[in-house]
Amino acid sequence: MSDLDLLGAFPAYGEEGPVLNDWDDAEKSLGVVFPEHFKRFLGVFGGAKFDDFLRVYRAGAENPNVDLVHRTLAARETMERTRDEIRDLLAERGSSPSELVRWGGTDNADLCFLIPHEDPDRWAVLTVIGRGDEYDLYEGPVEGYLLRVLRGDLVSEVFPEDFPDEEPSYEHNPRI
């Protein structure tokens, strides 16, 4: 089973239905070409909320608070102005805050990013605490990172001790 399948096996509730993402607009607006594995991830989990805490955004959501493009553009500006340690980390990787893609966020204002790479298999996940200096860097796709956090295989420096729940679940909300 793939990591995406294993994530999908967690208990779910909420609305059923297809998750629609506007990939053409997102790629054009953000200046990136998304890897197919990320498109599949958002095709399943766009709009979902894990353990009533971590929201996954959707490309083309009408609500700007959960729209991948809107949230990314706002976060890029913030990260450029305020986070020296993140700018340094990205510079070491040959990247910058202007390339980050914000795929999700938490109720604590934590920011979940992708760090693009020319090789689609080398995109990484960067999760930054909303207030403080902590961050997680995961070399791999979003679904791998999220699965390992939810199963307790990876202890996040960013998320609170009570996330995830003992029995993780998610709310499926494809129209958010």
Score class of each variant (00 low, 15 high):
65 N>I: 08
79 M>L: 13
81 R>W: 09
150 L>C: 10
64 P>W: 06
57 Y>V: 05
167 E>D: 11
86 I>H: 00
174 P>Q: 03
155 V>Q: 14
157 E>H: 10
169 S>C: 11
149 V>K: 01
147 L>I: 08
93 R>L: 14
133 D>F: 15
117 H>I: 11
93 R>F: 06
140 G>D: 04
140 G>A: 05
76 R>S: 01
160 P>V: 09
132 G>H: 05
72 T>Y: 01
56 V>W: 04
74 A>W: 12
81 R>C: 11
69 V>N: 00
75 A>Q: 06
72 T>F: 00
138 Y>C: 02
139 E>A: 14
114 L>E: 07
100 L>Q: 00
99 E>R: 08
61 A>Q: 01
160 P>L: 11
130 G>I: 06
146 L>E: 02
122 R>I: 08
161 E>T: 15
69 V>M: 01
83 R>H: 07
160 P>M: 08
98 S>L: 09
80 E>H: 10
141 P>H: 15
95 S>T: 07
169 S>K: 13
128 V>I: 03
130 G>D: 05
107 D>L: 10
68 L>G: 00
170 Y>C: 12
95 S>K: 04
130 G>T: 04
173 N>H: 15
131 R>Q: 14
63 N>F: 13
117 H>N: 09
128 V>P: 00
122 R>P: 09
108 N>Q: 14
70 H>Q: 10
139 E>S: 08
103 W>S: 04
173 N>E: 10
131 R>W: 06
101 V>Y: 03
173 N>W: 09
94 G>A: 05
143 E>N: 13
79 M>R: 02
104 G>I: 04
135 Y>P: 02
61 A>P: 01
141 P>M: 14
150 L>M: 13
117 H>A: 15
74 A>E: 09
150 L>D: 02
90 L>V: 00
168 P>G: 11
156 S>M: 07
144 G>S: 14
59 A>C: 05
98 S>Q: 13
131 R>H: 09
59 A>V: 03
155 V>G: 09
151 R>N: 11
174 P>M: 03
63 N>I: 15
70 H>G: 10
111 L>F: 12
168 P>M: 13
147 L>P: 02
150 L>E: 03
140 G>H: 03
109 A>F: 14
92 E>Y: 14
164 P>V: 07
161 E>K: 07
109 A>T: 11
152 G>T: 14
147 L>E: 05
94 G>L: 03
59 A>W: 00
149 V>D: 01
153 D>E: 14
96 S>M: 02
144 G>V: 07
88 D>P: 03
56 V>E: 05
176 I>D: 08
128 V>D: 00
173 N>T: 11
134 E>L: 13
64 P>K: 06
137 L>M: 05
76 R>K: 03
102 R>G: 03
